[in-house]
Design a protein around this nucleic acid. Structure first.
Length: 516
DNA sequence: ATAGGGTTAG
């Protein structure tokens, strides 16, 4: 760093801005500290914003408390910091202090507060304050109110807030459209979109995402094809739309089309979506090629992108590459750990999965509910009944995670496979959830495997009452009756099977389908 | 210097 002598406040501030824009927070701090004689309020505000932009809310607060004098920008900046860190209580407290100190809120203040307290009753108070101070005439404040009332699930107030915006631009229109999308009112959203005088890429993309979140993939694709200009966010949204609707091949085709026919280049967001699509259809070939593309593109491996890669290799059955990827990334979080533990669990490497879990705890990463699904899955595949019971108890006692239906499902599977049908049934009876089809299926398979007619029938009847169906019902019964030589009942069941299961997905293996 | 609309993982 050069040590040129700074002569004025504006020189100091320009130098701070340059450092912050280059992401050199430390240098900005040094400059700020070593030039205390040149500091003005703007210098303090710049540092405040710098800390917040770099995700250091605690430093920002300390600086804010030490400031000799605070102007409206200082208050607005610290409020935006509380928004970033999701601390609405502190935001409210500081806002009150500011008002009580006699400082008048600006449009920025109200906009920030509105976005923090959208979907809270405080919104109405803020709206009132905006009207009293005349700040509701500010288009940005008005647009924030539209989003706020959407969050409050009040379509009438939302539309009124929109009408009250004196000069509506495409941001205001898009907010209104998104509001209707959130209400599931696709027709109203489309009407607003049609009426929008100027549409840009963002409005089009918002429209596409709205269609997707309302489950209308075809409409989304129509808008996608219709729009004049698509950017990387548009492409990623559409690809993600296919991916989350289990249309992995369409997702991958669209990605290929993006590379081939457009000049838009993928980013981290695109790649993590595409990797999820590869994982979803177990396409190791495509996944490896995407991995190569990412390496060539020199993109940064953020924690999301890297865990998508681990997940892709894990789901595509390449355990070694999953391991290698996981170990090679410095930044890891719960999701990355879950991906690798889940990978080992799925592939029957129970010991390795449980070792990874212990390693994760040692590294101080806090497990979540999904971690324990993976851990229990590992116990199921290894037949580790005692370990499973231990972890089920551990998750609640040590980590305050209440077992969900999925965890109970694993336990039923675990006990059932071990032949402890009675205990599995006890667990079903005492758990605080209604069993789903998957859980009954696991239980029934266990009954079939262990020739336990009594419990199997109990489960089959329960499923019938709930109008659930599962191939395991029939295979269990076939097994049980067949084993007992009750061939007449087997034949009856086969007829029933044909009636009930025809047209639905049967539990046929590839060999069965080829044989028939 | 601070504010409003669109994208990512299990």
């Amino acid at each position: 760093m050069s040590v040129a002598r700074l002569l004025s406040s504006s020189q100091l501030n320009t130098a701070i801005v340059n450092h912050l824009d280059d992401g050199r927070l430390v240098d900005a701090v040094k400059l700020f500290c070593s030039n205390s004689h040149l500091r003005n309020t703007a210098s303090w505000n710049l540092m405040l914003a710098g800390y917040i932009r770099n995700g250091r809310p605690q430093c920002a607060r300390k600086l804010f408390d030490e400031m000799p004098c605070r102007d409206i920008v200082s208050w607005n900046t610290i409020l935006s910091g509380f928004r970033r860190s999701g601390d609405s209580f502190m935001a409210f407290q500081h806002f009150s202090t500011m008002i009580l100190s006699g400082l008048r809120p600006s449009g920025v203040t109200l906009t920030t507060m509105i976005t923090i307290f959208q979907s809270s009753n405080l919104l109405v108070q803020l709206h009132g304050m905006a009207i009293r101070t005349g700040l509701s005439l500010n288009s940005i404040v008005g647009t924030a109110l539209v989003g706020g009332y959407a969050g409050l699930r009040d379509p009438i107030a939302m539309f009124q807030a929109f009408k009250d915006i004196p000069i509506k631009n495409s941001v205001s229109w898009t907010s209104l459209m998104l509001g209707y999308m959130e209400f599931g009112r696709l027709n109203d959203a489309e009407r607003v979109f049609e009426a929008m005088p100027v549409k840009n890429v963002v409005s089009w993309t918002a429209m596409i995402n709205g269609c997707i979140s309302n489950g209308n993939l075809n409409a989304a694709r129509r808008y996608f094809d219709q729009m004049p200009i698509r950017n990387v966010i548009t492409w990623t949204s559409m690809i993600k739309g296919y991916q989350q609707n289990e249309q992995q091949v369409n997702a991958l085709n669209l990605f290929a089309e993006m590379l081939r026919l457009s000049s838009v280049r993928p980013n981290q967001f695109t790649y993590s979506t595409v990797l999820a699509a590869c994982a979803g259809c177990c396409s190791l070939l495509f996944g490896k090629s995407v991995h190569g593309q990412i390496l060539k593109s020199q993109l940064l491996w953020d924690v999301i992108l890297s865990s998508s890669l681990v997940e892709m290799y894990g789901k595509c059955g390449d355990v070694d590459s999953a391991t290698q990827s996981f170990e090679s990334f410095e930044i890891r979080n719960v999701v990355s750990w879950n991906s690798i533990i889940g990978c080992y669990a799925r592939h029957g490497l129970s010991t390795r999965a449980l070792e990874k879990f212990k390693e994760m705890i040692q590294e101080g990463v806090r497990p979540d509910d999904i971690t324990f699904v993976c851990v229990l899955m590992a116990c199921v595949h290894g037949g580790l009944v005692e370990e499973g019971e231990y972890y089920l108890e551990l998750m609640e006692r040590e980590f305050c995670i209440k077992p969900r239906l999925e965890h109970y499902g694993c336990m039923v599977d675990l006990l059932g496979r071990a032949g402890q049908i009675d205990r599995a049934e006890d667990l079903i009876k005492q758990m605080p959830f209604e069993p789903d089809t998957a859980l009954w299926g696991a239980f029934l398979s266990a009954c079939g495997w262990h020739l336990n007619l009594e419990h199997g029938l109990w489960a089959a009847k329960a499923m019938q009452r709930l109008e659930m169906d599962h191939p395991a019902i029939y295979s269990m019964m076939l097994r049980v009756y067949g084993e007992r030589g009750a061939w007449r009942r087997v034949n009856g069941l086969k007829e029933k099977m044909e009636k009930v299961v025809v047209g639905k997905q049967m539990g046929l293996s590839w060999v069965d389908s080829a044989a028939s």
